[in-house]
Amino acid sequence: MAADAFQDRAFQHTLRAPALFAGVGVHTGAYTRVDVRPAPVDHGIVFVRTDVIDRDNRVPATGGAVCKTQLGTVIGNAAGVTVSTIEHLMAAFVMLGVDNAVVELDGPEMPIMDGSSEPFVRILDRAGRRAQDAARRYIEILDVIEVVDGDKRAALVPAERFEMAFEIRFPTAVIGTQAIDMVMDGPTFRRELADCRTFGFAHEVEALRAMGLARGGSLENAVVIEGDRILNPEGLRRPDEFVRHKALDAIGDLYVLGMPIVGRFEGSLAGHAINNQLVRALLARPAAWRVKTFVEDLAEAV
């Protein structure tokens, strides 16, 4: 194995320099500025609401911090401070190998950018990464962990690497039944999933806005479907962009565990809610997984 590849897998990483960007939140419609900064070893991913000054404004991205999963993942702290729609940035963090970072933002919701993870990938690439003097920890799945809710299912299954399998079904000819099954690593994520956008249905928009959601949604940051046609003039980026985006969401939702996964994710009609149920099911079954490092792997192989 090349030295760079070993360092990438074996050691924790943070950013080499701050990464700055801004945009509107898809649900709040609020314009938010974000500054992603380097963080020390074992810090994890922590969001900081700089617009909140009267109470604790730090919100660590952890499994127990997820407080809402309607059309996005929302995390909160004991002081009631929340950060919404973190999943696309979290997917970029884990698949680019960023273990530790401080995400400072001056509003309640992460910018949606173009509805995918690709803008975050570009921004993080510009900032660069640096290795840190500590081993990267992984969650190795030892036994099947499964959550079923009606026709929805999410599971983590033992595997030698991170694999992603997902299936969706929607009663429109634009989507129908779509499925993917692939080994997931950084290059594969960049090539196959990162540019796949969130999507929604035109007939739901007014109801969502009445609920205080989708206020920042537009054809610039989401694929919008009306009946059996796509309203976006440019069309789809991929024929199965919908299921690929669902897989992207699941990757981000799983990273609230704070460590990459060695195992296979299987999702059927799954969304943010059942993804977080799976995270909590894993945390409740410590015998079904273990924390390991790449260095331990090498030692066992010798």
Rank of each mutant, 00 (worst) to 15 (best):
G217E: 01
I141T: 12
G252D: 09
H272V: 07
T172L: 10
D240F: 01
F166H: 01
C196T: 14
V256P: 08
E226G: 09
P158C: 06
E241T: 06
M184Y: 04
D228R: 02
E146I: 00
I225D: 08
G271S: 12
D228N: 11
A154Q: 02
V223P: 03
R215P: 00
I251E: 02
F170A: 04
T198K: 12
E226K: 13
E204Q: 15
L248F: 09
V174T: 14
D149W: 00
T177K: 04
I175E: 07
K246G: 05
E234P: 00
E241I: 04
V174E: 12
T177F: 00
E167D: 11
R215S: 00
G271H: 04
Q178E: 13
A250K: 05
A247C: 13
G200T: 06
F201D: 10
L236E: 05
R137M: 14
G150D: 03
E234C: 00
I261S: 11
E146A: 01
R197F: 05
G271V: 10
T188I: 14
A270N: 07
D151W: 04
E167R: 11
M164V: 12
G235R: 11
Y255V: 07
Y138G: 15
G235K: 11
V256I: 13
Q178T: 08
G200C: 09
V147P: 09
I180F: 06
I175M: 12
E163D: 15
V148E: 06
A273D: 12
E220I: 00
A159F: 03
E192Y: 01
G176R: 14
A155K: 06
A165S: 08
L254C: 05
L156M: 14
F166T: 02
R136Q: 01
L248P: 10
P233D: 12
M184I: 06
G217K: 00
F162Q: 10
R169C: 11
T198H: 09
V205I: 15
V144W: 06
R136M: 01
A155W: 01
A270K: 09
A159W: 02
R264H: 10
D195Q: 06
S218H: 08
L208P: 10
A179H: 03
A270W: 01
M182V: 13
A173F: 08
P233C: 10
L257H: 14
P158W: 01
E220T: 05
A214K: 00
S218E: 07
A207Y: 00
R191G: 11
L269H: 14
E167F: 05
H272M: 07
D185H: 08
R197Q: 10
T198Q: 11
T172F: 09
A202D: 14
A214F: 00
I261C: 13
A210M: 15
F201Y: 15
P171V: 02
G176H: 11
R161D: 13
H203P: 05
I261V: 15
G216F: 07
D151C: 05
G267A: 15
G216D: 07
G235Q: 11
D240I: 01
S268F: 13
T198E: 11
E140R: 15
G235A: 10
G186W: 02
L231N: 09
V148T: 08
V157D: 03
F265P: 03
L142G: 11
I145P: 01
K152E: 08
L248R: 08
V262K: 15
E160D: 14
V147Y: 04
I145Q: 01
C196K: 14
I175G: 04
L269P: 07
A173V: 08
E204R: 14
C196W: 02
I180T: 08
G252E: 06
